[in-house]
Design a protein around this nucleic acid. Sequence first.
DNA 1: TTGAAAGCGTTACCAC
DNA 2: GTGGTAACGCTTTCAA
Lengths: 351, 351
Amino acid sequence: MSQSTRPSDRRVTITDVAKAANVSAATVSLALNGSLRISEATRQRVERCALSLRYQPNHAAASLRKQTTQTIALAVPDIGNPVYIEIARTVQQVARQRGYHLHLISTESQPSEEAHALGTLAHRSVDGLILISLRGASGLDSALRDVAGPVVIIGHLRDIVCDNVTVDSAAGAALAARHLWSVGCSQLAFINGAAGTWPSAERWRGVQNALLAANRTIPPALRVQEDFTLDGGYRAAQRLMTQGVHFDGLVCANDLMAIGAMRSLREHGVHLPEDMAVIGMDDIRECQVTTPPLSSVSLMAGERGRLAAQLLFDRLSGGEDGPPRQLTVSPVLMARGSTAPRQEPEAGVDA
Amino acid sequence: MSQSTRPSDRRVTITDVAKAANVSAATVSLALNGSLRISEATRQRVERCALSLRYQPNHAAASLRKQTTQTIALAVPDIGNPVYIEIARTVQQVARQRGYHLHLISTESQPSEEAHALGTLAHRSVDGLILISLRGASGLDSALRDVAGPVVIIGHLRDIVCDNVTVDSAAGAALAARHLWSVGCSQLAFINGAAGTWPSAERWRGVQNALLAANRTIPPALRVQEDFTLDGGYRAAQRLMTQGVHFDGLVCANDLMAIGAMRSLREHGVHLPEDMAVIGMDDIRECQVTTPPLSSVSLMAGERGRLAAQLLFDRLSGGEDGPPRQLTVSPVLMARGSTAPRQEPEAGVDA
DNA sequence: TTGAAAGCGTTACCAC
DNA sequence: GTGGTAACGCTTTCAA
């Protein structure tokens, strides 16, 4: 079976196949791309030749000629962050399903790297780009004008217009607060993430809305702000407990902080969830393995990825017309053990 | 400042810049690519023109001509798996640092998709490929012969020869067992993952080695096998506890199973880590948020990615000569609360 | 149904 | 130093 026929050194090109099949290069191209205007006989002959020569069309050449790369790019702020990975996963799924490749770019949240990502689009390395931007995609205004294809931004748009997918994280924060009340909490505390960021502003806004609507308050002593990390949550909870103000429900601006806070609470002898209900946001995997499992508000990362990809492919296939479209997905409550409904204290048995 | 100068519809090419700068296309190319044989004056002129025209070199054209894409591909079995993400992260780092782009392909462990990944290399979409293969890269033998560039495989090579990076997970399992003895365990149990897979075979082999060397045994009743999931671990632990054979240390073939097992143990009133030490493998993020934090054996995913990338770029830049190289990294113990050293029962105070 | 030829936008090898 | 010119490998008219 060693019908190798290897052309020694050189790559095998379309003309090699053409010669072997006794047709022109044009015919080979047509035949291999399934054109209907080729006789069944030649098609088969060509296919056999291509196979036995192990012909592989050169992608760069085809791209150059067709002016399309069959590739989209996804630029994420940090490839280590599971939330972005979740987005990447669904984007990859849609892309593959459409026969596209995926270029992954990690920007580390640096504007220079975001510009670089747009560069790949400008260079026509890719046909379209999905960009996840934290800082509200501000400096990209001009860069967006130079690119040679559609762009979809996931995250908050500061002042530019562009196809975009966001999640209503204010609504998510409100959802979290209301959930705590619904399981019987009477006084909430709130741990927010790094000041000055869009997510932290939004989440506080959401909590405020909920407070207003429920005619309740969170005194300043029960509002603390740290960065969005495990340690941040730990420190924040410690500070809350030194305030001397009683609270029995804790809303955290993300899960990492919530987990850190739970650790601190437990160290101070607070029983979860009996003494205190805790809820986070993001619904990361870790929620399922804490004790008790952490309730959270899913920000629908996967769904956002799917929608963004859809938006992008709409532009790619349907023609580029139409005004920018903004999609907003709604967060979803994931109730778990950390917010188990309160027992009425009538029949409580303390082990 | 609106020096737009936009050539209406058409993309701006190198000849546009050439005309604007009153030089030839060749000169533009040389100037922009930093050739030394261009006068400083022309270089600056060309650069200004390129900038003001917003010229972006076409990547496909350059690739076609240069026969290189400045892109490598990484094919992972499952983009949802944090272990592979960790690999992806370091590969991406090395790639960027070398000025290369990263193509990410998720194969879902399907041989057809692995072949597809190799296809991107054959099509010269990419210059090189790192392939993470679970099933020991068996059917790829012939496909590997057709590709147009270097391939590095992360994982076990069944019978093919190829640059490759593996981790000695047998050593890792032995490490886990020895660690449990060192913290005072006298009888171990072992929860293994899905039968018939390479990792499960290796890890059991490692435990056996350790047992042999320590002159100890794990009776069959204390060896169970489930799939590598949280639920698998949960079920496995349940089965262990119905055996009626006492054990005080539990080695799990991965962290997910260990976490599931911990949950089951706790539900049965077993105190961790006082009554039972538990250790997993992989060192996933979740280890840090369980109660107690789960000890684990890191399989050095990031390091493997880094090494694989290094191997690949050695081929890419240094010339393709040299026989296949096989690298094996050593696992590292990550001791945490779940394997806290045993208190001697003399001064124990039960709260 | 098939073939010839003209690009796609670069880079590289020559002359000048 | 700089400018022609010929590839790179493919697709796509347009004729035959």
